[in-house]
Design a protein around this nucleic acid. Structure first.
Lengths: 136, 136
DNA sequence: TGTTCGTTCAACCATGTAGTTGACTGATAG
DNA sequence: CTATCAGTCAACTACATGGTTGAACGAACA
């Protein structure tokens, strides 16, 4: 769980392109050579080769020589890193929401205890002090 | 669950920058104004303002005027879209792995039934025909 | 009604990305 | 050993991004 910030940059950058996401979907389904992948797109071989280098830099795939072509293999671990990183933001929000919810249920004169479900949006408390800079 | 490909581009692009991820972590913890956010970084106000526009374009945050400053509110739904999209690639891989696993357990003369756990890597079948281009 | 304060816009620079074409490399198959 | 074929590299174009500075905007307070 190293997750150097540069690695996350590369990871999300690699995902931020429709062609690369298509390639990822292809190689998630089957092991394909770079040439076979290229046939699926209206781009030059070189362009696909570059896209695959970007995916490789992000550690989302690796290449393996098989005969005279190179097979592209998906590396699911990096997908998991990305997914869990995103989940962390969701958890932070969720925990804050629950704290806020508890606070409201507490200070409100028990008129509807634990009834403030997640349909609540945009809780306007506005004075949250406790924040510390979580670099990255 | 619209997920236009451009929207995913913006979403992952917004996540592909350490400063923006920091901002996201800040606003996941607490509602902050743009000015308060800017104080956490060695960047100009304008630079932070631009970063926040990128996050807004990705639908990861929205702004809400409060008095004379503008509060930045996280929008967890887009995080979920991103996370679930990534999970889809993981599922595709997982399903392929399980199909492959079943195939191996089947053709192998029952010497170790259902024992080929996920420690197996790089299953060299090499002849997967059935792939159709899943645009995006 | 100003003025002020928080924020955005415009212009600019440097760098990165996505694509092309054409030359090059290097492992494999003959 | 050599020709071939899959893939990469280099150079170039066009455009996007991330940053700066300074001017402009717009809502709110006095």
């Amino acid at each position: 769980m190293v997750e150097r910030t540069e690695q996350l940059d590369f990871l999300f950058l690699a995902l931020a392109d429709a062609t690369r996401r298509s390639i990822l979907a292809l190689v998630a389904e089957a092991e394909l050579s770079i040439g076979m992948i290229a046939q699926h797109f209206d781009l030059t071989f070189a362009a696909i080769s570059k896209h695959i280098q970007v995916l490789e830099r992000a550690n989302l795939i690796r290449k393996e020589r098989r005969g005279k072509e190179q097979m592209v293999l998906i590396v699911p671990a990096s997908l998991t890193v990305a997914r869990e990183h995103i989940a962390r933001y969701e958890q932070m929000w969720e925990e804050r929401f629950l704290r806020l919810d508890a606070l409201l249920n507490d200070s409100a004169t028990q008129e509807s205890p634990t009834k403030t479900t997640k349909s609540r949006r945009s809780a306007a408390h506005g004075k949250a002090k406790r924040y510390q800079r979580p670099r990255q």
